[in-house]
Computed example of a mutant assay.
Amino acid sequence: MAKGGTFGMRERKFTCLGNIVKTGLLVGGSGLIGGGIMHYFKKRADDEFELLAPNSKQLSLRDPEDIRGYCRKFRPEFIINCAIAALDSSPLLAYETNYLGTIHLARVAMERQIPYIHFSSAAVLPPGENLTEDDRLELTPELANYPKSKLLAELALAELHRKHGLDYTNIRLAVVYGAHDHKIQGFQRLLFSLADQAMPLMFTNRRAVHSYSNAKKVPAFVHHVLRNRAEFGGSTWHFVDPLPVALSQLIITIKSYLGLRRPREIYLPYPLASFGAGCMRRLVRLLGRIGIEARMPAELLFMENFYQTQTLSSRRLKNSSFVDPKPQATVFTELPLLLEYYLSRWEALNLITPCNQDHFACRVKGEEFVHEPDRVLKSLEREVGQPFLGPEPPDS
């Protein structure tokens, strides 16, 4: 059972067969990946694992005393760390959250001799094709705060494994896509820019290809990793879809789904895009000096990546004992669901201007409700004729 927080001494949980359920600590349970893991373990692994998921007020990665106190009190038998600082965080916040917090949790895992599952990012990798788990950027002072802190964490975990026997698994994700993320960042920033018509031209080229990670599949992999420590311990794994995606093709597909005229299929050269981002950065600084708060989208810090190819090898994952629960699922097959979820949410929050709503061709049900409400009622009998709950999902 996944819990948002626990107070008082925890009693051991037993299954109906008398087996003890292992209790784990999940850090970062409010995010896209962490939230998905909580939901999955509650529905699919409740008879094996119980997750404690304290919020940042109960356990702050930036406060080692919080971590010591919580782990002494509840004695987790494994740790999953999904927490990250934002892409545009200050050096101190990125260092304390992405690096120091990772090390504090790793030390708990070492001293208690328990598994530690850590989530990393393709931001630690250079551009290139078919990059393996052994590839990394060179650690230099010039690296941006986010990749530098994530790279430091990876290097430190590998060192703790070699010298002190830390039982860890490092999972690298690429561009993550999935529903139920309340932040507009990464893949969702792309959707938002297109839906809000904020991208007049193609801020990429025809050659740039990237790897993508399906957030819905991650929890099943974590479950499998916990069950198979001998195979997955002490190593890094790329959790990505087998086939990479051209950014230009993805933009054009989203544009087609939404029935939009923009962006025009005119590819803005990188020097011009970089110059525009620089002008915007200077404008933001100027506004700050006169007391107007403004921030650039964090993704613009990585604009160069829009024009470069970076694909991650999935060979190690494919050759492992893990079986993809939905091998046919890709970012393209999931697009209709993602668009329906995020457009509905952003409209409800008035983040998308009304002038754009007429273009959302994928909103079939909404159009029926507005223009043909009698059809909505007529469909009720057909819907009631189908089972609502459906069959119980099979065990993973």
Rank of each mutant, 00 (worst) to 15 (best):
T236V: 12
F322H: 06
I254Y: 02
E304Q: 12
G35C: 00
L335W: 04
S193N: 13
K183E: 13
L87A: 03
L92C: 07
L160R: 05
R68M: 07
E293V: 06
I292W: 14
P336Y: 10
F239A: 12
L92Y: 09
Q185S: 14
K3Q: 09
G35Q: 01
E48K: 03
A123H: 14
R282N: 06
P269I: 10
L226R: 00
F41D: 01
P126H: 04
I266C: 13
L389V: 15
A45S: 15
A277T: 10
C362W: 01
K22G: 00
R282E: 14
R10C: 01
E65T: 13
V222E: 07
S211G: 13
F221Y: 06
R107T: 07
K73Y: 13
L151K: 04
Q310C: 11
Y146E: 03
D324H: 09
T311C: 03
T6Q: 15
Q113A: 14
S256Y: 05
A94G: 09
N19I: 00
N130P: 00
P91I: 01
A294Y: 05
E138S: 06
T353H: 15
Q185I: 11
L131V: 02
Y212C: 08
N98A: 04
M9Y: 05
H39I: 04
L131K: 02
L26F: 10
G278T: 06
R227M: 11
Q308T: 04
E299M: 13
A122G: 05
M280R: 02
V124H: 00
N356M: 08
G29L: 01
S396F: 15
P76W: 13
P127R: 06
A85V: 02
L152R: 00
S213M: 08
Q188Y: 07
E372A: 14
E299G: 05
A45T: 06
T253K: 12
Q357N: 04
V176N: 05
F187M: 06
R264G: 10
A174R: 07
N205T: 10
E129D: 11
P126F: 12
T23F: 03
I352D: 04
L87W: 03
S235N: 12
L243Y: 00
E138Q: 11
G4D: 06
N81T: 01
G233E: 07
H238C: 10
F306M: 07
H164L: 11
K163I: 00
R382G: 15
